[in-house]
Design a protein around this nucleic acid. Structure first.
Length: 275
DNA sequence: CGTTACACCTGCCGGC
DNA sequence: TGCCGGCAGGTGTAAC
């Protein structure tokens, strides 16, 4: 589900509700969500009494900064957070509840149960799973053309596959990779090692521009993505190829083709994107 | 070590 | 109508 722009939007919404609120109780209804610590009772014990100092984002990960710990949350395909009054009935797919000191609750909902949570000591989060293998965030200063070129130049994988690899650059997912490659005029099946420096700069520039514009629009709403306040993103109105199979290309009018790349549905204009 | 296949889950949609 | 395969905004790990 969410990629960088959706996670950024969720982060900003949750900050308005959670900063300076204290966790008074934790309930877990599907323990496989909790990856660290191993023991669910320890997970609850660590978080109880902790206050939200800040919320940040690295790639598609949400980082809840508490007094002593960092709660690291990944929404994977379908994870959603909601802020509910404690009296609101729990939904079928609510798996974790953090009860706050204002009679409200932060609830984690996830139809497919793919999402993950890790709790680590504050300050150690970048050295350990799950953040230690991530490449730079696209908005970070260290996402330079030199870095990107060297990474792309030494792999024969398809460019689409490489852009989805979070150890190269973190935050792009299936929607924004397809949009980026279309705008850069590069075919998803082109081998990364065969891209020119100009093409790589085009991919980098279009990725950053696309993600920034999507953040401004509050993300993309497919099916039922909503932020923590029930607001939908609007970027789906600006999609050129994702979900546009058989629709005319907004650039040349030819039908958008859907294919499979690395097991992922992939949308391409075979006239505008050169292989 | 680099790369790919599969596992993890549920719901929905289209074809027979 | 009912069943079944395929698909979905992702990634950790086993296996090659």
């Amino acid at each position: 589900m969410p990629e960088l722009p959706e996670v950024e939007t969720i982060k900003n919404t949750l900050k308005r509700f959670l900063l300076n609120k204290t966790i008074e109780n934790v309930s877990v209804y599907w323990s496989n969500i909790i990856k660290l610590p191993d023991d669910i009772e320890k997970f609850k014990f660590m978080l109880t009494g902790q206050t939200f100092q800040n919320i940040t984002r690295k790639g598609k990960f949400l980082l809840f900064h508490l007094d002593d710990y960092m709660l690291i949350s990944h929404l994977r395909m379908e994870g959603k957070y909601s802020i509910d009054d404690a009296s609101t009935p729990i939904k079928k797919h609510t798996h974790v509840i953090f009860s706050l000191n204002n009679n409200e609750e932060l609830r984690y909902n996830d139809v497919r149960k793919f999402g993950t949570m890790h709790v680590v000591n504050k300050g150690e989060e970048l050295l350990n799973k799950p953040l230690n293998q991530l490449g730079p965030d696209p908005f970070d200063k260290d996402f330079t053309l030199t870095y990107f070129y060297e990474k792309l130049n030494k792999t024969d994988r398809f460019i689409k596959t490489v852009l989805l690899d979070q150890s190269i650059v973190t935050g792009l997912g299936n929607i924004y990779v397809d949009e980026t490659l279309f705008k850069a005029g590069v075919h998803p099946l082109k081998k990364a090692s065969r891209l020119s420096k100009k093409e790589i700069k085009g991919i980098q520039d279009q990725a950053i521009l696309t993600l920034k514009e999507a953040v401004e629009q509050g993300g993309t709403t497919i099916k039922s993505y909503v932020n923590g306040q029930g607001e939908m993103g609007m970027f789906q109105q600006k999609l050129f190829v994702y979900g546009q199979e058989n629709e005319p290309c907004k650039n040349c009018g030819r039908p958008i083709v859907k294919m499979k790349v690395g097991g992922r549905g992939t949308h391409v204009c075979i006239a505008c994107q050169k292989q």
